[in-house]
Design a binder for these strands. Structure first.
Lengths: 138, 138
DNA sequence: CTTATAATGTACGTATGCGTACTATTTTAA
DNA sequence: TTAAAATAGTACGCATACGTACATTATAAG
């Protein structure tokens, strides 16, 4: 039997290292990771349903409801009725939400860029391919 | 500027895919992921401090307290005084905890083995190396 | 030896993360 | 065409996840 535990450990530790690195910066910008993901997803769009946001951010709907509640309380998003389907709701950024997007999205990308520049395009591609191979077994 | 987003997405999606795959099986065994991690860590040992468990399971101490509370309520672990350092506590598996370890640890490894057998030793090693390279930038 | 600092674990508050149940609406099928 | 099945989002409960504050004990500095 092959020993897959080191590979597994590497996956978990690397994910946690990234999550830690990224979320600290996001918190310094005044948002949680979930809130940032939603703002980043809605930026430069005309709005989206909860289902679409959940698909992009990988959040399950139950979690998303809470995140949207808090973003709504912060007046960064609004829920408006979807005329095409009365079951669903359209989520849109408010003016404050747009400003938050402008103030946080590019800065966070820049922050990540700094460390990712340590890797070449070739290396990034190899890592991605290996991750996809691992992903394919689940 | 290099586009690192696809690599990042692959990391997040792969981690979530594994987590989902693994935790469903653990839940079917009657434990949460955190509880399983603690049981697995304590198995075949003479007990450990919270600090040591946190180190192995990558749980922060605040989280660990709650997980241990619930394992204690299930009578799977006990907290005993550490004679060498009165600040700390030794966590030990009870007889039920040992039984749970025996009933879940190897079965879960076997469950994971099934899918990891789709990858060769060479592939596993390459994935691990790539993950470590990615980890090194954070 | 005494005090300042560090380490260990708990308490607590906020925010996910996820499963199940539920309401409202839409689509499918008989 | 109308009842059954599927879909969208919310409500709710439980278990992390993590930061800050806290009490207790240990160690280092003087």
């Amino acid at each position: 039997m092959t020993n897959f535990l080191p590979t597994l450990r590497a996956l978990v530790r690397t994910y946690q290292a990234f999550d830690n690195f990224s979320s600290h910066h996001i918190k310094s910008l005044g948002l949680t990771t979930g809130q940032f993901d939603v703002i980043a997803t809605l930026g430069n769009t005309q709005g989206m349903t909860c289902g679409e946001i959940g698909e992009k951010t990988l959040m399950v709907k139950g979690t998303l409801t809470g995140v949207l509640d808090r973003l709504e309380a912060k007046a960064m998003i609004v829920r408006v009725e979807n005329p095409k389907d009365k079951r669903s709701t359209l989520i849109k950024l408010t003016a404050l939400g747009e400003k938050t997007f402008k103030d946080t999205f590019q800065p966070h990308l820049d922050y990540l860029s700094q460390v990712f520049s340590k890797l070449s395009d070739k290396e990034l591609e190899a890592i991605e391919k290996n991750l996809q191979k691992l992903n394919s077994i689940f």
